[in-house]
Design a protein around this nucleic acid. Structure first.
Lengths: 142, 142
DNA sequence: CAGTATCCTTAGGGATACTG
DNA sequence: CAGTATCCCTAAGGATACTG
């Protein structure tokens, strides 16, 4: 999404509105899922994201960097061979979870109202379906 | 934001995830502010949006149409001269307010932590600052 | 007043090949 | 494994002029 570039043409200044901050730092195609994924894993590695989400490596790299810059996740390098890199949530990142859960709930109920199909893995994560631990630990094919 | 076009390359299907639904229908540069605006006004007219927000007429029209299509707002035409058109929230639209408030709160606290300047009108709307009704009714110059 | 119509820019995202 | 590098496309958003 384009960064805000509002002219200051009125008394209300959109650029300093928390809604604008939330949208810029947090509302994007992948961040919700990335943060939820780390939350449920505890720590997540690069390749797990690429398998879990239909996201390209370039976009994943960019998104993780943005989340790190904004202080929502932390990147830790373990100098093993081959190298291991883990992403974890910061306190600020964890503080998003109630909000994320509420968003999920709103979306879930709205999709139900509209008769839309809902993915079962998300339902397990959010308590709308009985958990299948094995499936949740490896929710992808390759 | 681009609509989702994920390949179904794993067991988790991003397209059917409520997060994806929420992002597609709701997370965009203007929708938060538009919905909040209508909520606090009760009913809002086209020109009030254009004065309140640094949004172009084209984008406003598009955004309002999307919100209407997704069942979050309602458009009512009063055949006066000149014509009056009012936008109000549907029940589904109103059901977003707790979520919006929570987003605002998260953003507000985070901006405070980071020492960022916060717009006072939003603070009045969300109870972080004493309300100035006159200002809230006409929060723009022209 | 409440929009259309036109033209334009740019950021977000994607595919794929390659690398320390 | 965990990314870079390169090239590409689209859609979101913007500016401005015009209209029933």
């Amino acid at each position: 999404m384009e960064k805000s570039n509002p002219g200051k043409n009125n008394l209300y200044n959109f650029e300093n509105d928390p809604y604008n901050y939330v949208i810029n730092t947090f509302c994007n195609r992948w961040k919700f899922c990335i943060i939820r994924g780390i939350y449920f894993d505890g720590a997540t590695r690069f390749n797990r994201f690429t398998k879990q989400l239909p996201i390209s490596e370039k976009v994943l790299t960019m998104t993780l960097k943005e989340l790190e810059t904004d202080g929502l996740i932390e990147r830790t390098v373990y100098p093993e061979v081959p190298v291991r890199v883990e992403y974890t949530l910061t306190d600020a990142g964890r503080s998003l979870m109630p909000l994320l859960d509420m968003m999920y709930d709103w979306g879930w109920k709205r999709m139900k109202e509209l008769g839309l199909e809902i993915d079962p893995l998300g339902e397990m994560w959010h308590g709308y379906r009985e958990k299948d631990e094995a499936f949740m630990k490896n929710p992808f094919k390759k």
